[in-house]
Simulated scan of single mutants.
Amino acid sequence: MRIPALAVLALGTVLASASVHAQTYDPSYPVCLHVYGPLNYYECRYTSLAQCNASASGRSAQCLVNPFFATAGIGEPPVHYRRHHHRAY
């Protein structure tokens, strides 16, 4: 009974680990190129959409904004100035 249980456990471990993927997007660049074909993959090496579009030209590929870009949303918060209304006497 012990050997079949260990075999099932080992098989489950192997099947579960096969479905794990590495991080697809590189958080260092704001634009990624998604290449379609026998191998679908992402190249996140572009600093602008124009640069990515030049590389995608003539290929089965699409440029998209990197959702994991490292500096997205980081920075100074927006400044909201409060207006002071003065009454004229």
Rank of each mutant, 00 (worst) to 15 (best):
H34G: 02
G58L: 07
A16Y: 07
L9Y: 06
Y46I: 04
T71M: 12
A22G: 13
A56R: 06
L6T: 10
H34Q: 12
N40G: 03
A61K: 06
S55R: 06
R82E: 09
Q23W: 02
R59D: 13
A18C: 12
N53Y: 04
C44E: 00
A7M: 12
V65N: 06
R59A: 12
S55V: 15
A54I: 12
S48I: 03
Y25E: 14
A70G: 09
R87S: 11
Y41G: 00
Y89H: 10
Y25M: 08
Y29G: 06
S60Q: 10
S48F: 01
V65W: 02
H80G: 02
A18R: 15
T13E: 04
R2A: 12
T24S: 04
V14E: 03
H34E: 10
S60M: 08
E76K: 02
V79K: 01
G73T: 06
H21E: 13
A54T: 11
L39D: 14
A16N: 04
Y89L: 13
A7G: 11
A56E: 07
Y42F: 11
H34M: 09
L49V: 15
L11R: 08
A22Y: 07
V79T: 08
G75W: 02
P77N: 08
A18Y: 10
E43A: 13
Y81M: 04
A18V: 08
H84V: 12
A16D: 01
H85I: 15
Y36V: 05
G73D: 07
A54H: 10
